[in-house]
């Protein structure tokens, strides 16, 4: 297994956290992981993304030009990353904030109403967890749902840790989608 994943969205949507979380979970399962966030002025402009590699083998290059998986949480991110997804790759897109369909037909595009479902679970801020849960469902080889849930306390900063109950529910909700 070798997956190059890009998570992308607004700053504040928990994009970097999604990446960190799956890395910790996969690492605990003995896989090799790497995580590079966008940083600096680019972040302050309001968009955030991170590149995550999860692999059974040693990771040669942590840089991803053509992701095999892309999770986009807002419209600008769809515009920015859709083209780069490998043919045959997976694109998860947040239809709560994206009102159009991906144009490519050589990739698997899976919609998810992440914000709405997160709201139903108790907090719109856990939309990232809905999407991540769905990703774990579609790509179970990345990491087990339980591993991700038990990585929450390590990955989430202390001041947001009270959200982990809702984060857990949201991960499970995303995982239950098909």
């Amino acid at each position: 297994m070798y997956e190059g994943i890009i998570f992308a969205g607004f700053g504040g949507q928990g994009i970097i956290l999604s990446g960190k979380l799956i890395c910790i979970a996969a690492m605990r399962e003995g896989k090799n992981v790497s995580h590079i966030p966008s940083y600096g002025a680019e972040m302050r402009g309001g968009t955030a993304n991170c590149s995550v590699v999860i692999s059974d083998e040693e990771i040669a290059s942590p840089l991803i030009r053509q992701p095999s998986i892309c999770v986009v949480m807002n419209k600008p991110s769809l515009f920015k990353f859709e083209e780069s997804v490998q043919a045959g790759g997976l694109l998860i897109y947040n239809t709560s904030l994206i009102d159009l369909k991906p144009s490519r037909d050589d990739i698997r595009a899976v919609p998810v109403q992440a914000n709405d479902l997160a709201q139903e679970e108790g907090n719109v801020r856990s939309a990232n967890m809905i999407a991540l849960g769905l990703l774990l469902r579609l790509k179970p080889e990345l990491a087990a749902l339980d591993s991700v849930i038990s990585a929450l306390d390590e990955a989430v900063s202390a001041r947001n840790r009270s959200l982990n109950i809702i984060n857990t529910k949201s991960l499970k909700r995303g995982f239950s989608l098909s």
């Binding site: 960190k20 890395c23 790497s34 995580h35 590079i36 940083y39």
Partner: peptide, 10 residues
């Protein structure tokens, strides 16, 4: 370099 500094790895 900037990438190494920003990168998280196990």
């Amino acid at each position: 370099d900037g990438y190494l500094g920003q990168m998280s790895e196990s």
